[in-house]
Amino acid sequence: MRPPRNFYVRSFQRGAGMLSRVADNLYWMSRYLERAEHTARLVDVELQLWLDQSPEAGAGRWRFLLEALRTPAPAGEVNPDNLVNTLVFSRANHSSIVSCISIARENLRHVREQCSSEMWEQLNRLYLEVIDNQPADSWILKSHSFFRAVQEGAHLFQGITDSTMSHGEGWQYIQLGRFVERAETISCLTGTHFKRMAFTPEQAVESAEYLEWVGLLRGCGAFEAYCKAYTAEIVPIRAAEFLLLNPDFPHSVRFSVDRVNAALHVIGDLTERKAKLPVRIAGRLRAQLSFSQIEEILAGGAYSYLENVRAECGAIHSAIHQIYFDYPVETEMAS
């Protein structure tokens, strides 16, 4: 039988729990970095697709992109230049790549002593690299390397985090932030796509729309993994199943929710709190995803199903805040 967690080390460790502010910073840092990575991947994929399309078909996809990223459209005419400005450089848009990485770094800077020096150095380097870019004429055509750098920088940061930071409570908040954000962004992207496209679930998509579906899978970093599972023939129901319910693919909704759930359980143990609320919501969502069948989901409408997933993620987020980061002092004193 396995001894309980901390069976051997507990007596030497200092008191349980970490500063609420620190946990909060780690959580947000991780969310913002995940968001930057997602936006970079998606915009990159969209730009590639744009090059393959006629100008008329291209116009519509920008609106879709903004909707998938939940970003309000920039003022005036929407064209690739001001779009990239909004999604990549804008400081006014808190979800632009530059903003996300700046905010992630600022969050980590507040808690530098809690992460490893390697983590800080990597994020700081990524930040310095990103702010070095300025919007300029035809920047867009050379932008691939930039988006690659953002994604690689984020991946490197994750690898460094996993191999240099103790997988204790702080690391769990980083996991939590990353996977709450991922569950939300993937739900949003996939939901928007299914709402927009006309499709027959069981029928492989034709050439005219093939690129759109490839775009969806690429936007989730899932194209290659999908091909391995189902070959390059894209059938909407399979794509939906893969992105929503696959238990092993790290960018599926189910995988993300599983991780959120696991992190919440460990945090509950470590803080010695019976934090019923977030665990209950996450558990419910996890059960839903584990036992749903894709046919039912599509029959009821993928969009509304995914909107519900997003709402549940929001509820988990609020519950985490309420229990761990910003609890009222009076209740603590009373207990």
Binding site: A16, L19, S20, R21, V329
Partner: peptide, 25 residues
Amino acid sequence: IELVEGRDLLVHNNVVYMRTTSGLR
């Protein structure tokens, strides 16, 4: 050791506590 800001600390009955994820310490 913990790096704290003023807002992480509070005083109750003349004892200083910091706000942690597992309660006040």
